[in-house]
Amino acid sequence: MEVIATRPKSLRDVPFTYCPGCTHGIAHRLIAESIDEHGLINKMAGVAPVGCSVFAYKFFNFDMAEAAHGRAPAVATGIKRARPDMHVFTYQGDGDLAAIGTAEIVHAANRGEHISVFFVNNAIYGMTGGQMAPTTLPDMKTTTSPYGRKVDDIGYPIRVCELLDTLVAPYYIERVSLLSGPDIIKAKKAVSKAIQYNKEGRGFTFIEFVSTCPTNWGIEPVKALVWAKENMLPFYKPGVFRDKGAPE
C-alpha cells in the first residue's frame, strides 16, 4: 500500500490533547508541514502559550519554550536575539495574545522582530472553560458574558490583524480561515509564506487563523464550522493585510 500522507517530521509522536472537532490540530499540522518543506527542523524553536495549546511544547519536534500567559512574543524575542541563527515562532490563542499579552505582541510587531506569530482566534477562552475573550463577538454568550457580550459595557472585539497593520515594521500580516477544505489549502499557503519569510530573515510575520471551539461554544463540530462562517468571517474578514515580499 502506498503511503500518501504521514505525520510531518516536525510533529512528535505524541497524541494531541485537543477536543474532538478542534482546529488546533490542523493549525499545528500546517505549521509543521511548512517547517519540513523549508528544511528548517534543525534550526527551529517555538514558543507555546498559556491556553488550550499550552502543551504545544510537547507536540513540536524541535526545541520549545513554554511562556507565561501572554509573554510568548517577549520570550521569542529573547531566543531570537540570543540565537540569531535559529528561526523562532510563537503559537498563541486570543486571550493570550489579544488580552493579557497585548503589549508584547504590539511591541514585538513594532520592532519588526524576526519571528513568526501564529494566532488562533476562536473568540473564547478554551482551557479555563469558555470565558469571554477580547475577540468574543457582540452579544455572544460565554461563561463570563452570560447575557451576551454587551459592547456598551465591555467594548467591541479586537481585530488584531487590522491593529497590527497600523504599524510600520511588520513584514507580512494575513488572516486565514480553518473552516473548510479550500480555506485550509489557502491557510497552508499563508503559513508556508510566513515560514519562508522567516527563513529568509525578512522580518515580523503574522498569521491569524479564524477557528472554532465546539466544546465551549456548545455547538457540534460541523455546525460550529457553519456558525463560524456565518458569524466570525463577516467580522474577521480573511485577507492579506500586508505583504512586503509580494511582487509589485
Binding site: A45, V47, A65, A67, A68, R71, A74, V75, A76, T77, G78, I79, K80, R81, A82, R83, M86, A103, E104, V106, H107
Partner: peptide, 16 residues
C-alpha cells in the same frame, strides 16, 4: 516595552 516583557526576554535568552 515593560518590565514584564524584559524579564520574559531574559527567560527566552536564558532558555537559549
Amino acid at each position: 516595552e515593560s518590565e514584564v516583557a524584559a524579564i520574559n526576554m531574559v527567560y527566552g535568552a536564558a532558555g537559549a
